[in-house]
Amino acid sequence: MTTPSPLRPGQQLASTDCSTRVVIVRAPSEDAREIACGGTAMVPAAPGRPSGPATGTGTLLGKRYVDVDDTIEVLCTSPGSGELSYAGVPMVVKSAQALPASD
């Protein structure tokens, strides 16, 4: 099974290799590519909590991940040991944007 296409905001995906789960925050409207965790395509998440303990430091709970072109953004809802990738390229933790100074 591969990552469902098209990807939609609010859609939940789960890793088949570890306890990583994500929610799609932003996705391209066309030409969506595969989201993978640990090198294996993510699948639609089953209702409920993931089975097994969250281990490793591949994905971090509550962090947003983006691709290098900033076309897709996911939120990690369950950490795991796998590394997220989009179209075969590793995703990175989205950095916080500075708020404007108030005078």
Rank of each mutant, 00 (worst) to 15 (best):
M1N: 11
T2L: 10
T2P: 14
T3P: 05
S5K: 15
P6Y: 09
P6R: 08
R8I: 01
R8S: 08
P9I: 07
Q11I: 05
Q11W: 06
Q11C: 02
A14T: 07
S15T: 06
T16P: 08
D17L: 15
C18A: 04
C18V: 05
S19P: 07
S19A: 12
S19G: 04
T20H: 10
R21I: 11
V22P: 02
V22A: 00
I24M: 03
I24T: 06
V25H: 07
V25W: 01
V25I: 13
V25P: 02
R26V: 15
R26F: 03
P28K: 05
P28T: 10
E30S: 15
D31H: 09
D31L: 14
R33D: 11
R33H: 13
E34G: 02
E34P: 03
I35S: 00
I35N: 05
A36T: 15
C37T: 07
G38P: 08
G38N: 03
G39V: 01
G39I: 03
G39R: 03
T40K: 13
T40A: 14
T40S: 15
A41E: 10
V43L: 09
V43Q: 08
P44S: 09
A45R: 14
A45L: 13
A45D: 12
P47K: 12
P47Y: 08
G48T: 04
G48F: 04
P50C: 12
P50S: 14
S51Y: 15
P53T: 11
P53W: 03
A54D: 14
A54H: 13
T57I: 14
G58W: 01
T59I: 02
L61G: 03
L61M: 06
G62K: 05
G62T: 04
R64P: 05
R64H: 15
D67R: 13
D67F: 04
D70P: 08
T71N: 07
T71I: 12
I72A: 03
I72F: 00
E73P: 02
V74N: 00
V74C: 00
L75V: 14
L75A: 10
T77V: 14
P79V: 01
P79S: 10
P79R: 02
G80W: 02
S81C: 02
G82E: 01
E83D: 11
L84F: 08
L84D: 11
S85D: 07
A87H: 13
A87S: 14
A87Y: 12
G88P: 09
V89I: 15
M91Y: 03
V92K: 09
K94S: 09
K94H: 05
S95P: 00
S95W: 06
A96R: 13
A96T: 04
A98C: 13
A101I: 04
A101M: 12
S102L: 15
D103T: 00
D103Q: 00
D103C: 00
